[in-house]
Amino acid sequence: MKAVVLVAVAALLAGCAGGPRIDSSHTSLGQDSRAQFIVLHYTSADLARSLELLEQDQVSSHYLIGESPPTIYRLVDEDRRAWHAGESEWRGRTWLNSSSIGIELVNPGYVEGPQGRLWYPYSEQQIDALIELLKDIMARHGLGPEAIVGHSDIAPQRKVDPGPLFPWKRLADAGLLPWPDAAEVARQQASFAIELPDVAWFQDQLRMQGYKVPLHGHLDLETRNVIAAFQMKYRPTRFDGEPDAQTAALLQTLNQAR
């Protein structure tokens, strides 16, 4: 009898150790990727220093793209969180480390000179590599053309990367993000040159784009920084944070096309 009890107990313990069986034969349609955005950065350092920094525990990104040759380094698996976005917000989502894939491009950023900041360009080969990587990530995660943002978009009060020389138009030409129609921008600009909207209008239009922006109707420093981030992306020849007719036309054209 004692032997029977011992056998029963052993069987029970074995069953508990194995845990419940998980049945994966049913799949819900109500799901999508945890990655909703792809955030682009520059490293402000050369390749060796960039790898050294991104391999530590203070900052990280999923990918790093070198300059020449443009090798793509995978540093963090896409299903894990990397520390690249920091305090951030886009379209109501905050702290985007948890919902984004970060891509760092090796680029010095800028240096301060007598005439102001001197920005460094990106090589064509580096952008070619980035475009192919973006296409692959977007296809696998089911992301649309509004998923790609810059660090300056999600944190305009403290970040300026990937900078005014980043070729956003090349990404748009590759079908990776929306771009304002030039003829429509010109038409809208002529109208806005006659009567410019007030600051509250600009703030609301920027909010529609996805930016975190004050909605109080005052042209304060925070609002100027958001306007400058938008201009750096769509009108990089002048990103002074001034709410002018061309910026208004770009905003309205983009928002009407959504």
Score class of each variant (00 low, 15 high):
Glu55Ala: 06
Trp179Glu: 09
Ala10Lys: 01
Val226Cys: 14
Pro243Cys: 01
Ser98Lys: 00
Ala200Ser: 11
Pro167Thr: 09
Leu12Ile: 15
Trp90His: 03
Ser68Lys: 12
Ile38Phe: 04
Leu40Trp: 09
Asp198Thr: 12
Ile127Val: 14
Ile65Asn: 05
Ile127Phe: 04
Ala85Pro: 03
Glu87Met: 02
Met138Ser: 06
Met1Ala: 14
Pro243Ala: 04
Pro156Leu: 09
Gly241Tyr: 14
Trp83Ile: 13
Pro164Thr: 08
Lys169Thr: 03
Tyr73Asn: 04
Ala35Cys: 05
Lys159Ala: 08
Ile38Gly: 10
Trp168Thr: 01
Val199Leu: 05
His218Gly: 14
Ala129Trp: 11
Pro243Met: 05
Gly66Ala: 14
Leu171Trp: 00
Pro70His: 10
Val185Thr: 06
Val149Asp: 09
Leu40Asn: 04
Gln252Gly: 00
Gln188Ala: 15
Arg207Leu: 15
Ala182Pro: 15
Gly109Asn: 10
Val76Trp: 01
Gln189Phe: 03
Tyr234Glu: 07
Ile65Val: 10
Ile154Met: 08
Phe230Pro: 07
Arg81Lys: 14
Met232Gln: 14
Leu221Asn: 11
Ala85Asp: 09
Thr94Val: 04
Leu171Lys: 06
Ala14Leu: 14
Gln209Ile: 12
Ala248Lys: 05
His84Ala: 15
Tyr73Pro: 06
Arg187Lys: 13
Ser60Gly: 12
Asp32Asn: 08
Asp173Asn: 14
Tyr110Gln: 10
Val76Met: 09
Met138Tyr: 03
Thr223His: 01
Tyr120Leu: 13
Ala139Met: 15
Ala248Ile: 09
Trp179Phe: 08
Ala245Trp: 03
Trp201Ser: 02
Ala139Pro: 11
Cys16Trp: 09
Leu13Val: 04
Ile127Pro: 01
Arg170Gly: 05
Thr253Lys: 04
Leu219Ile: 02
Val185Gln: 02
Ala193Lys: 14
Asp46Gly: 14
Gly113Val: 08
Gln252Trp: 00
Leu75Ala: 13
Cys16Ile: 07
Ala10Pro: 06
Gln36Asn: 10
Phe166Met: 07
Leu206Val: 13
Leu51Cys: 13
Ser61Cys: 11
Ala45Met: 15
Leu96Thr: 01
Arg258Ala: 13
Arg207His: 13
Ala139Val: 12
Asn97Lys: 09
Pro180Met: 03
